[in-house]
Each structure stands twice: as structure tokens, then as C-alpha cells.
Nucleic acid binder design. Structure first.
Length: 277
DNA sequence: CAGTGGCCCTGAGCGC
DNA sequence: TGCGCTCAGGGCCACT
């Protein structure tokens, strides 16, 4: 479900409300991608700081308060995760795998596939958080990101541009849907070897990534499926997918039937006419 | 080093 | 209605 816009909207939807909240209890369900790394009881008494985002990770600072542990939780929603913030604390369902019960309500991770994670770390710049974030590329709206940077970062990389974008070690945030959409907007064939992008096309791709992610953010997260923020509020549907999940359907620009191919075991959708090598 | 494929897990959708 | 198959918005890791 969640690419950068969805993660960011999720973060925004609970960050203020929980900043300053005291942890009363933490509970784990089934194992997630990685172990929490600390006994849930140890989180009791900590005070939550303001949640931050890096790539598709959310960092929830934990301040020691009177009796708690100092550090934070690094959260990832994986493919199917979502966070909910509620006043009450209903009994957990089978797919509710992490609860943070505070004096301001319940933050609950719901994640059927369990590719998501909640990992305790003593600091954002200490292991294990720092290790997980180490290989991330620039944030899409980082002013240092421009065509020149992209060109240099892609130098010597023979993988297809779609896969380079998805890898997240150059720019973070564009997952499978938005990577397809950005390449369509930029008019670039997803199979093009990354190092072959001209400087002009690097400029266009940076602009396209920002455009797609920015519009999804403005629409309140996605747009494309069933995303809801931590209050259960759905995103608006202002951003129609141009190519994603539209195999065989006419390109909205030129009416050519769109194609689906597989790259790195992930589906790629593109327009064979609008997107060039 | 860059690139490839496997894998973690559950649920939805489809053809038969 | 049920079964078996494929696929799904992510990303780490082992291996070549």
C-alpha cells in the first residue's frame, strides 16, 4: 500500500496528536519483519516526541520522561501495513501486530502480510536504525536533488531506470506505482539502462518524480487504492493513474494500448509510444 | 562493485 | 462453492 505520500500522510495524521503522550503499555502480535529489539514492557513510561519520516520509514522518538527508555521506534509499513490512531483500545484483530497504548490514545499497526516492522533503536543515528537508513538516497524534495545529481548517481549503472528508481538508493519514495507514473510523465522507457539517461532527461525525471509524489501528497495520500490515514480518512481521487494497472487500456495521451512487463519480479506499466528509449 | 533472484507473509481474484 | 494458481503498493540478503 504505502509509498512515500501514504507514509507521509500517515505520519502527519498522528504526529502532533501523540507528541508528548506517555506510553502506558506496548503490545506485540505476531512477528514482523524484524524483532522489536527490546521487551515491550520497557517502553512503558516513555514520552513520545514528534514523529519524523525518512524515505518510507517513520521515526517515533521516545524520550525518557520520569521512568522510560530513551531512544525511538523505527516503523515501516511494508506492503500491507497501516497505522491507526484511536481514542479507545478495542481488542486486537488477527492482523494487529503492534499497539502503543498511551494516555492520548492507541497507535496500532495493522499489517496482514507482516512485511512491515517496528524496531527499537537508542538513536536515529545508531544501530539498528542507522543501518536500515544507511543506503537511502535523497528525499525527493531535497534541494540537492537535481538533474545533475541524478546523472552522476546513475553513472555506471546498467540496470533499467525503473529498477534504479525503485531501489531507493538514489532518490527515495517512488515505489512501484509512482515509479511507473513518473517515467510516463517524463516520457522515458522504463527499460532504458540508467546510465544512458541524457542530462535533459535527468532533469525531466527529477521534475516528474516531484510532480507525481507532490500531487499524491496534496491529494491526501493515494488516490490510487484504498489508502486511509491514521484517523481512517481516505485520500481523494484527484490523481488518476496514467499507466499503473492499466495493461491493454488506451494511453490517456495517445490512445495506444498500454503494456505490462516484468522487471526485477515487479510489474511495470508503460506506453510504448509516449515513452522512448 | 553492480546486478539478479529468492524470500519474508496473507489475501484477493480468477479460471476451471 | 471450492481448489489451485498468480499476483500484490517493499526491501533485505546471499550469491554471481
Amino acid at each position: 500500500m504505502p509509498e512515500l505520500p501514504e507514509v507521509e500522510i500517515t505520519r502527519q495524521s498522528f504526529a502532533q496528536a501523540l507528541c508528548g503522550a506517555r506510553v502506558l503499555e506496548a503490545r506485540l502480535g505476531k512477528p514482523l519483519r524484524w524483532p522489536l529489539g527490546v521487551a515491550p514492557e520497557a517502553l512503558q513510561g516513555s514520552v513520545l516526541g514528534l514523529a519524523q519520516r525518512r524515505g518510507k520509514y517513520i521515526w517515533l522518538p521516545l524520550l525518557a520522561g520520569q521512568s522510560g527508555l530513551e531512544g525511538g521506534l523505527l516503523l515501516h509499513l511494508g506492503m500491507s501495513g497501516s497505522l491507526g490512531l484511536t481514542r479507545e483500545r478495542p481488542a486486537p484483530g488477527v492482523h494487529d501486530h503492534f499497539d502503543l497504548w498511551t494516555d492520548r490514545g492507541l497507535l496500532r499497526l495493522h499489517d496482514p502480510r507482516r512485511f512491515g516492522a517496528v524496531v527499537w533503536s537508542r538513536a536515529l543515528d545508531a544501530a539498528p536504525a542507522a543501518t536500515l537508513l544507511a543506503r537511502l538516497g535523497l528525499e525527493p524534495f531535497d534541494p540537492r536533488l537535481d538533474g545533475r545529481y541524478l546523472k552522476q548517481a546513475l553513472a555506471g549503472r546498467r540496470v533499467a531506470i525503473k529498477q534504479a528508481l525503485l531501489a531507493g538508493d538514489v532518490v527515495v519514495g517512488a515505489g512501484n506505482i509512482y515509479a511507473c507514473e513518473a517515467l510516463f510523465l517524463a516520457g522515458i522507457d522504463p527499460r532504458l539502462p540508467a546510465h544512458k539517461l541524457s542530462p535533459a532527461r535527468c532533469d525531466r525525471l527529477v521534475a516528474a518524480v516531484r510532480d507525481v509524489l507532490g500531487r499524491a501528497l496534496n491529494a491526501g495520500g493515494s488516490t490510487l487504492r484504498d489508502f486511509r490515514d491514521a484517523h481512517g480518512v481516505a485520500g481523494s481521487f484527484q490523481m488518476l493513474a496514467q499507466v499503473y494497472d492499466r495493461e491493454g487500456q488506451p494511453c490517456r495521451v495517445c490512445t495506444t494500448p498500454l503494456r505490462r512487463i516484468v522487471q526485477g519480479q515487479r510489474s511495470t506499466y508503460y506506453c510504448p509510444k509516449c515513452q522512448k528509449k
